[in-house]
Design a protein around this nucleic acid. Structure first.
Length: 914
RNA sequence: GGGAGCAUAGCUCAGUUGGUUUAGAGCAUCUGCCUUACAAGCAGAGGGUCAGGGGUUCGACUCCCUUUGCUCCCACCA
């Protein structure tokens, strides 16, 4: 093995990953062991690895590697998602660059392009995961549109339809005019926008000069005078010719062609004169009724609302309640349709600009105000504003699923980490809405519904797993006995991507097509799911639903929600900001082990993490530290004849206890999914306790040999440390572990994790003062500028806090010539105290009395203040009587210590100033 | 509008059912060291009235209330 003093990860990492993969050591098959299963949140098939994936997959890998080393049959199933809208959008864009329009292609031709694209880009991300060290069972790699998964989806659709849970309905859906498809509510992202509120003039359909409906006290406003929303009397508008009109505030003037009513609140005094009237839609000239509904906010705008049932969810509701006509003024691509009668063929954005001009020219625009409102955008087409649109879609009734998915999470059978997401989950399930599962896309699972010829405005269809089955079902319908296969027309739509992802934990083990097969029985429920809280509704909740529905049990026992990866300024990492580093560059620069550490060091479940490249440096440095510690130990020569010193024996006993304690701590951290803390524990153990203390304790003098038992113990410690580190840093640990002893075909990845054992806590406690004394001597050295190689004498007034068995370690670590036990203070020496023990370092030259006095006075002030605090507690009778005896005893001990220290300091001061 | 969460050292965060020193770590900073594994290192040091206010308690960073500031989620105010 190389002796380079810097660890170079590149070659080592690719070497080991290739060996692991060719030995197929991450492959799992059911056996007698306890299973540990994770299903990967499938990344988009054509996606590229980003920092979110890095975090997510590092965590999964740590969990799965640890489980594997703890003797479980670990199985991490990888795969990709077809991501229907996102992928179809990419393909459409690519085709457009070649001058091909989607509408010029047949479904089959388009799908051929999409598959080409998938084959070309698909799986890149899985290659990238290998660079990170992800220990997936690649034999199980799946795709949401592969055969097994597709069959599962179709089967589930048919089953749910037959159960009466899937239905078809004409609903107001969120329409993405660019992709020309419906979206689920969850796929719409609302963004605040600076926009305008337009006040339009709707003339009352009546002769000029009419006054009916007016009450005494009614006020007539000129166009310039604003409304006072608090007024309790009628407010009228009348133009110069005496014609009355209403004013409507709207953010979307381009939809007036679709207006079929104007609505006021029945309790609105200022608009009560409009009751029962009809008004004229500006520019359009159509007369529409004034309706009354309490939905209208009296104080918003003018209290008059234009109602466009075809293009607004609320207006649609109003339309239904008041039986209004519906005029759909948009084509699927959001250009104006024939039905609008004006601006036909123009884009909605252009129409808005144009109509504003036209309204102003016609004197129908009262005023324009700045206004901040929320506009919905398509999640997968973020630049496209969603258009509410009325159309026929497929829906899944959700109440049944909400009922089965809520209890297990609320009663912690299925645990969320952190648990705060239980509330989010409950809120969503308690207000569940039916899921629009159809998408007007080609890339995806085609809906297995087959339409039969039917009369005008009528729909007849059958739902079946295959065309043949559909034909059979169709022929059972009276009047269709002789229908031919050609007359059946399969629904053109595809299913929402999440309609396949929600089956993932079941479908990966083929539990839909082959219920109760050996694999699903063994691996399901899976153990942990690691994912982001942003897809708690899209995916997590729905998997829980499908898991219970299709495999009778929870899909996973624990869900670990990661945070969002932000840059160190707290901004979300995004392409447009350019603040997201390329994970592969980071790996190339710092090594996969280093980057893994970086991700883990800054994460705690559910909290966003500020990623700073400096953390990668820290990770890389840690790897280097491990490397160099190994070089040190590796360079030691054993002398079999050499007797083991008491100091070495003590060092081994102490580190053994320290290591065991750390193992227990890590175990506790893992049990609570505090992965970052678990890493920090082993980081400190290796860097401070092992390298900083233990190795320095047993390190032989330059070129001197080491005794055999100490060497053996040290190698044993190294072995355990590498095992503990392996889940976090699989590459460097494997490299060193292989060098530590001949391993044959064995891999550290499959070695056993040190288990939790009893440790000698007393030893650790007793070592505390030794460490402090060492630091104190070093501080003296530093203050006096004494080189490390110059040995120092140390005098000590022994007491209960001085443990002679550690003396050899004290001597070695502090660089002492020896320790002398004394009973008298030495006024000419530098002194310090650890707990109650006094130490003196004799100086060859005179000590700086003034500086020493000043320092002692500072200490004195501190301890006196400290003692005062303790005394205050102890003199409080209520404290002494109510606090637990143990706590009171600690206070007494603190008091004794402080008093002893104060006495010692005072004596020393007296001696110095004498 | 409803809900959740956060606020501790310059930065990122611990602080595990309220009681071990008058709050810890890592990074950063400062000061010494090229001490033969590691300068990607070693040794030492400075730095916080635990966001403000009130309450409960013998005792509060920790529990309750409130104010302020930030973040996120949900919701149909045109």
């Amino acid at each position: 093995m190389s002796l380079a003093d810097k660890y170079v990860p590149g070659d080592i990492e690719s070497k080991w990953y290739e060996r692991w993969e060719s030995a197929n050591i991450f492959h799992s098959t059911p056996d007698h062991r306890e299973p540990y299963t994770i299903v990967i949140p499938p990344p988009n098939v054509t996606g590229m690895l980003h920092m979110g994936h890095m975090l997510n997959n590092t965590l999964q890998d740590v969990l799965v590697r640890r489980a594997r080393m703890m003797g479980k049959n670990a199985c991490w199933v990888p795969g990709t998602d077809h991501a229907s809208i996102a992928t179809e959008a990419k393909v459409v864009k690519k085709l457009a660059e070649q001058g091909i329009r989607k509408s010029d292609l047949t479904r089959e031709q388009f799908l051929e392009h999409a598959w080409d694209w998938t084959r070309e880009h698909g799986g890149i991300i899985l290659k990238q995961l290998r660079k990170l060290g992800a220990s997936c069972d690649w034999d199980r790699t799946s795709f949401t549109m592969d055969e097994v998964r597709s069959q599962s989806v179709i089967k589930v659709f048919v089953d749910l339809y037959n159960k009466g849970l899937i239905y078809r309905g004409l609903r107001m859906v969120n329409w993405d005019p660019k992709a020309q498809t419906a979206l689920s509510n969850e796929e719409v992202i609302y963004k605040e926008e600076q926009s305008k509120l337009f006040y339009l003039r709707y003339y009352v359909d009546e002769p000029a000069g009419s006054t009916d409906g007016e009450e005494q006290g009614a006020v007539t406003l000129t166009p310039d005078a604003p409304f006072d929303p608090t007024v309790k009397h009628q407010i009228l508008h009348r133009d110069a010719e005496g014609r009355r009109y209403a004013v409507v505030a709207t953010t979307r003037p381009e939809t007036i062609m679709g207006d079929t009513a104007m609505c006021i609140n029945p309790k609105d005094p200022k608009n009560s004169w409009l009751k029962g009237k009809r008004v004229i839609v500006p520019l359009v000239g159509r007369s529409i009724p004034v309706i009354e509904d309490r939905y209208v906010e009296i104080e918003f705008g003018t209290g008059c609302l234009k109602v466009t049932p075809a293009h607004d969810t609320n207006d649609y509701m109003l339309g239904k309640t008041h039986s209004l006509e519906t005029i759909d003024i948009f084509n699927p691509d959001a250009t104006i349709s024939e039905a609008a009668g004006m601006y036909v063929g123009m884009d909605r954005e252009d129409v808005r600009r144009q109509i504003v001009v036209d309204l102003q020219a016609a004197g129908l625009m009262e005023k324009v105000e700045n206004y901040v409102n929320k506009v919905g955008y398509s999640e997968r087409n973020p630049s496209t504003a969603v258009e509410p649109r009325l159309c026929m879609q497929w829906f899944l009734s959700m109440q049944h699923f909400a009922d089965i998915a809520l209890p297990p999470v609320m009663n912690d059978e299925l645990k969320f980490y952190p648990s705060k997401y239980k509330t989010t989950y409950r809120n969503w399930l308690e207000n569940i809405q039916d899921w629009c599962i159809s998408r007007q896309l080609w890339w995806g699972h085609r809906i297995p519904a087959y339409f039969l010829p039917a009369g005008e405005g009528e729909e007849r269809f059958v739902v079946a797993e295959s065309a043949a089955e559909a034909l059979r079902l169709a022929r059972e319908i009276p009047g269709y006995e002789n229908i031919s296969a050609e007359e059946l027309r399969q629904d053109e739509d595809a299913l929402d991507t999440w309609f396949s992802s929600w089956l993932w934990p079941v479908s990966l083990f083929d539990g839909i097509n082959n219920p109760g097969n050996d694999e699903i029985k063994y691996y399901y429920p899976t153990s942990d799911l690691v994912t982001g809280p942003d897809i708690i509704f899209f995916w997590v909740a729905r998997m829980i639903m499908a898991g219970y529905e299709y495999n009778g049990d929870m899909p996973f026992r624990n869900v670990y929600f990661t945070g969002i990866v932000r840059d160190k300024l707290g901004r979300k990492m995004s392409k447009s900001l350019g603040n997201s580093p390329d994970p592969l560059d980071l790996i190339a620069q710092y090594g996969a082990d280093g980057v893994r550490c970086a991700m883990l060091l800054c994460t705690s479940a559910g909290n966003d993490l500020m990623f700073d490249e400096a953390l990668c440096e820290q990770g890389r440095n840690f790897a280097n530290k491990i490397w160099n510690a190994y070089r040190l130990v590796g360079g030691w020569k054993v002398d079999e004849s050499l007797a083991q010193t008491d100091g070495n024996k003590m060092a081994i006993k102490w580190f053994d206890a320290t290591l065991k304690k750390a193992v227990a701590e890590m175990d506790d951290h893992f049990a609570q999914y505090r992965i970052s803390d678990a890493l920090k524990t082993v980081y400190r153990l290796f860097w401070d306790d092992f390298s900083g203390w233990y190795l320095e304790m047993v390190k032989p003098a330059y070129q001197a040999p080491i005794d055999a038992p100490t060497m053996e113990a040290t190698r044993g410690f190294f072995d355990k440390l590498l095992r503990l580190l392996s889940p976090f840093m699989p590459f460097i640990t494997e490299e060193l572990w292989q060098d530590l002893a001949p391993r044959g075909d064995e891999s550290l990845c499959l070695a056993s994790m040190p288990s939790v054992e009893e440790w000698n806590e007393e030893l650790i406690v007793k070592f505390g003062p030794v460490g402090e004394a060492v630091s104190a001597v070093r501080a003296v050295r530093k203050a006096k500028n004494i080189p490390n190689r110059e040995p120092l004498a140390l005098k000590v007034i022994c007491d209960d806090n001085y443990h002679t068995e550690f003396e050899p370690l004290l001597v070695k670590m502090a660089g002492l010539s020896g320790v002398e036990y004394v009973t008298e203070k030495d006024a000419t020496a530098e002194s310090f105290m650890v707990k109650t023990t006094q130490y003196f370092v004799p100086m060859s030259e005179k000590i700086d009395v003034d500086a020493e006095v000043e320092k002692l006075n500072k200490d004195l002030t501190y301890f006196e203040g400290f003692l005062a605090g303790v005394m205050k507690k102890l003199s409080n009778e209520r404290f002494v009587s109510s606090a637990p005896a143990k706590v009171v005893e600690t206070e007494h001990a603190k008091k004794r210590d402080a008093e002893a220290k104060i006495a010692a300091i005072k004596e020393r001061l007296a001696a110095l100033t004498k």
